[in-house]
Amino acid sequence: MTERRLAWQLLLGANAVIMILPLLVMLLSATRTNAEIFASPLGLPTRAALANVVKVWQETDFPLYLANSVIVTTGSVAAILVFGTMAAYALARYRFRGAGAVYLFFVAGLMLPLKLAIIPLFIQLDTLHLLDTRLGLILVYVAMGLPSAVFILTGFLRTLPGELEESARLDGACELMVMLRIMLPLARPALVIAGIQNAVPIWNDFFFPLVILTSDRLKTLPQGLTIFMGEFNTDWGVLFAGLTLAALPITLVYIALSRQFIAGLTQGAIK
C-alpha cells in the first residue's frame, strides 16, 4: 500500500520538476549576462542583476506592447461581459417567442473556429475601416467570446429564484433596476468565471493581432515578443528577461486565483 502511494507521489514529483524547471531556468537566466548563459546554460546567477530587465523596459517597446495588451484585453472582456449579461438576462428571465432559436444562435458560435473565417473577416474589417485598429481586434474578440459568456451566464441566471424579482417589481422597481440592483449582484461568481474564461485566451492570443494589426504602436505582447526575438536573437539574457516579464502578470494572477482559473478554463469543456 505505502509502496504504491510512493510510486504515485514520485510521478507527481517528477511532473512538478518538469513543469517548473523550464520556468525556473527562464527566471534565473533573465538575471544573467550573455557570457554567463553561454558558459553554462544551467548555472545560477552570480549576482542579483536586473540589467536585462532594465534593458527590456527602457530600450524596447515592451511597455507599449504591455499597455496594448491591457487595453485590448480589458476592453474586450468588459464588452463581452456587458453584452453577454444583457443577452443572457433576456434569455434567462423573460419568456418570449423565438427565445429557443435566439439561444441556439448564440450557442452555435461555440463550435465555430473563427480562425478559419479569417479571410472574410479580414475583408469585412477592411470594408469597415477597422483593419489595423484596436477596435477592430476588440470586436473580433467580443464576437468570439460572446457564445461562451451567454452560455455560462444564461445557465446561471436561470437558477436564480423568481421571488426576489417579483417582490422588487411589486415595490415599483422598473425592469432595469431589477436587473442591475437585484439580479446581477447575485450573478458575480458566474461573471468571474466568464471573465477569466475569455481574458486568458485573449491576453495570450497571437493569431488575430498578427493578421489584423500591422502598426508597431498597436501590437500586443505575444506579437511584440516575436519581434523582440528577431531583434535580440543573440542577446539571450534580454530574451529570457522579456519572456519572464511577459509570463509574470498572468502567472501571478493565476497563483492568486488558481481555483477560479481552473474552474473558468475547464468549465466550458466539462458542462
Binding site: 513543469m19 517548473i20 497571437f206 509570463a247 498572468i250 493565476y254 482559473f261 481552473i262 478554463l265
Partner: peptide, 12 residues
C-alpha cells in the same frame, strides 16, 4: 503546478 503552463501564451 500542473495547470500553470496552461495559462501561458503559446508564444511564450
Amino acid at each position: 503546478i500542473v495547470f500553470l503552463p496552461v495559462v501561458l501564451s503559446a508564444i511564450v
